[in-house]
């Protein structure tokens, strides 16, 4: 079950300050990296919601992000809808598709669930790849960003767009916390702990899973919309299953089921990727070694490691006064 702890609040404040500092001081390339981190952070938040709190390890979240991206691209260019309407529709469509996938997959568990979601993701990928309306192999270009000039905000400015994504991420984090702390979110955690008992108590389990999966997909779809607006061009590569795999890596690297951890994971992953790829073309190898190290360390990712460290320290701090008492007596 999700709880905020002082450490989690502290991590959020640190992350937000770092992002704000970067947003106001960085140059073009730094801002691009920041935006990349923020959009990935939304995707991994969505994934952690279902994988970390309900045991639904999805391998189609990349594809769901792609549905949001393609939905927005087609609706705003080919269909000629205005950006706000196209955004809302794309997010709504992704939520609906996710709900259906969640409902269908709700009865399978473990490896079977993973395979079922992978199959859905691959179906979406190959459809987009083949269908002329989605531009096939060539992808779609000419995607416009949301126009907020009416309130004096120009999202075509790189810095402004990065700030916009930061605000969006904050809102989405709030939404994820609200869902996880709600009756639905608590029941969802209950199902992860003991599905049979929740059912015996009267819960319609598939419905709860589908609802949370739908909300999570909605967030992934929103991340896709922002990704499309960010690059202004999209290709089927966005929907490849490796995107889902990478998102899962980030969640595990950061700390499954902590919500804050995946944010840390997203920052570490993107920075690592850019730093290492400028040094060597074999950067994937190094990221792989780091991931293996994290998994083998038995800590729950980077953030889990930090939580363990502080828990151990506060235990030690409780023990210390006793020691001084003894010395005083002596």
């Amino acid at each position: 079950m999700f709880h905020h702890t002082p450490l989690r609040y502290a991590a959020l404040v640190l992350l937000a300050s770092g992002a704000l500092f970067q947003a106001f001081t960085a140059q073009y390339f730094g801002l691009e990296i920041l935006t990349e981190i923020l959009i990935l952070a939304m995707l991994v938040l969505a994934l952690d919601m279902v994988a970390g709190f309900g045991g639904m390890v999805s391998l189609c979240h990349g594809a769901l992000m792609g549905v949001g991206a393609y939905g927005y691209a087609v609706l705003s260019t080919t269909a000629g809808l205005t950006p706000p309407v196209a955004m809302a529709a794309a997010v709504g469509i992704t939520a609906g598709i996710s709900w259906v996938i969640g409902a269908i997959c709700s009865r399978s568990h473990g490896i079977y669930f993973i395979m079922a979601t992978l199959a859905f993701g691959q179906m979406a990928y190959s459809y987009v790849f083949e269908a002329p309306i989605f531009g096939g192999d060539d992808g779609l270009g000419g995607i416009e960003r949301l126009d907020l000039s009416a309130v004096g905000i120009d999202l075509n400015d790189t810095r402004t767009f990065a700030l916009f994504c930061l605000v969006a991420l904050a809102a989405i984090y709030g939404l994820a916390v609200m869902v996880l702390r709600s009756g639905l979110g608590r029941s969802f955690s209950g199902v992860m702990h003991n599905e049979q008992r929740m059912r015996a108590l009267g819960l319609t389990v598939w419905r709860v899973k589908a609802d949370v999966f739908g909300l999570s997909g909605m967030i992934a779809g929103f991340a896709g919309v922002l990704a499309a607006q960010h690059i202004m061009y999209i290709s089927p590569g966005l929907m490849a299953w490796t995107v889902s795999g990478e998102a899962l890596v980030v969640v595990i690297l950061g700390g499954l089921g902590t919500l804050v951890g995946p944010l840390v994971g997203a920052a570490v992953f993107v920075v690592l990727k850019h730093e290492l790829s400028s040094l060597t073309t074999y950067w994937h190898l190094i990221v792989g070694v780091i991931l293996i190290g994290v998994v083998m360390s038995r800590a729950n990712g980077i953030f889990g490691f930090i939580e363990d460290y502080f828990a151990a320290r506060s235990k030690a701090a409780v023990a210390t006064p006793k020691a001084t008492e003894v010395t005083k007596d002596a």
Binding site: S182, L184, R186, L203, T204, R207, V208, D211, V212
Partner: peptide
């Protein structure tokens, strides 16, 4: 147990 907008 199924409301996503309010606590249980």
């Amino acid at each position: 147990a199924t409301t996503f907008w309010s606590d249980s």
